[in-house]
Design a protein around this nucleic acid. Structure first.
Lengths: 219, 219
DNA sequence: CCTAACAGTGACGTCAGCGTCAGTCTCGGG
DNA sequence: CCCGAGACTGACGCTGACGTCACTGTTAGG
């Protein structure tokens, strides 16, 4: 029977997933460093030895979880194109923010893990993560540079702007997930983030402030 | 001799400091979780037992380091007053940003530790830290509300704005410290942060964007 | 029905890091 | 000069988590 092999294959994959899910929950609850293999196998309902049939060690499961989540986020971001009149850049920017917010709100557990435990696991892992992070910063920096030359992005060191942007977004997402905001708030958060990027919030009568547009009263 | 006792006292304090410094350096190099008591005493040049004469355990040293640093940051922030014509609010905001940036740049090691290791130490410690963090958010949120009623701060949920602000600042500081920016860049960073808060950076012809001021061309 | 292949098990030996404490050293007061 | 208080030391025993491996259970093919 050729189906037998296939069924066995599927069962193995499912077991793997089962362990991954258990690990994810345990990491979220106890934090990477306090989580033990025993916690994970207990949660997954398998024996200690079984874990080692599927993963090298704790670090390996963690790594796989993060890799998947990182890929999920990366996928949700669309590179911005400036030559499509049907899709204004504003909308594309908004869509990207929205997509990231949506992904994080639908994967709260992983979001929390990514933001609280991913740093300090291991120096190798830290390097890998830093590389991923750097590529995100790089992408945004490039986009900002391009935006500046198109007059869509204001003056300022692009890389610094990228840090500020990512930092703000990270914090917003972290809090949203931690405080348990409903998934429906995604649009509101996107709006707030977008408006923050568009105009900041400080409004001074342009005295000694740097050359910047003065706000007009609403409407 | 009454001075004898005092000298002994001073020696003890100095020893304590010596261990604290060693611990700080070890935490920065290896991260909280990978740092061992042996690492710390080796660096401090004292025996294992001595450590326990001064601190309960690893967590206690760490806690003291963080407490001191948190106090240092808290001190550097001045509550904003709106009724002193000699000190415009703009300047006070700027000064606060500048003070925080300055503190973090002059205490790079602690800044790095605070941002990378402080979360996930221990659930008690996490709670303490969350409380400190919350008080900062609270303070900023209140200020923003007040600012809104004075027309200095634009519309938006104050608490969300607080998260965005703190997130941006955190990331900026973390990167500045990690990438080893010179202390002289403090003013530049302050300027960038301030200008980010003042006007964001996205500039769109006001088509479908939310009601916001349209940028005037510079000068 | 038998058995080989293989997934799953969990008791076991190992070890890193911890906190202790009996003993040593130092130094100031008598 | 001697003694005792107290700072300091580091070898020691303990523990909790790890990864292994000899064994057990299951199932498909003969």
């Amino acid at each position: 029977m050729p189906g037998a092999k296939r069924r066995a294959e599927a069962a193995k994959t499912e077991r793997r997933e089962q362990i991954l899910r258990a690990a994810r929950d345990v990491f979220a609850r106890r934090g990477y460093h306090h989580a033990t293999i025993d916690d994970i196998v207990a949660r997954a309902g398998v024996a200690r030895g079984t874990f080692y049939l599927y993963f090298e060690d704790k670090r390996a499961v963690f790594s796989e979880l993060i890799d998947r989540f990182a890929a999920q986020i990366t996928q949700s971001i669309q590179r911005i194109v400036t030559d499509d009149p049907a899709r204004p850049v504003v909308q594309q920017v908004r869509d990207n923010i929205r997509a990231i917010v949506g992904t994080c709100l639908s994967e709260r557990t992983m979001t929390k893990i990514l933001f609280t435990d991913a740093v300090g696991v291991d120096s190798d892992f830290d390097r890998k993560l830093a590389a991923f992070y750097e590529s995100a910063v790089q992408l945004l920096t490039e986009s900002l540079k391009e935006g500046q030359s198109l007059g869509i992005v204001g003056e300022g060191e692009p890389r610094v702007l990228a840090y500020l942007t990512i930092g703000a977004l990270k914090e917003l997402l972290y809090q949203a997930v931690t405080l348990g905001f409903a998934e429906e708030t995604a649009d509101v958060l996107t709006q707030q983030m977008f408006s923050f990027l568009s105009g900041g919030y400080l409004r001074f009568r342009s005295t000694d402030a740097p050359p910047r547009p003065r706000p007009r009263p609403r409407r």
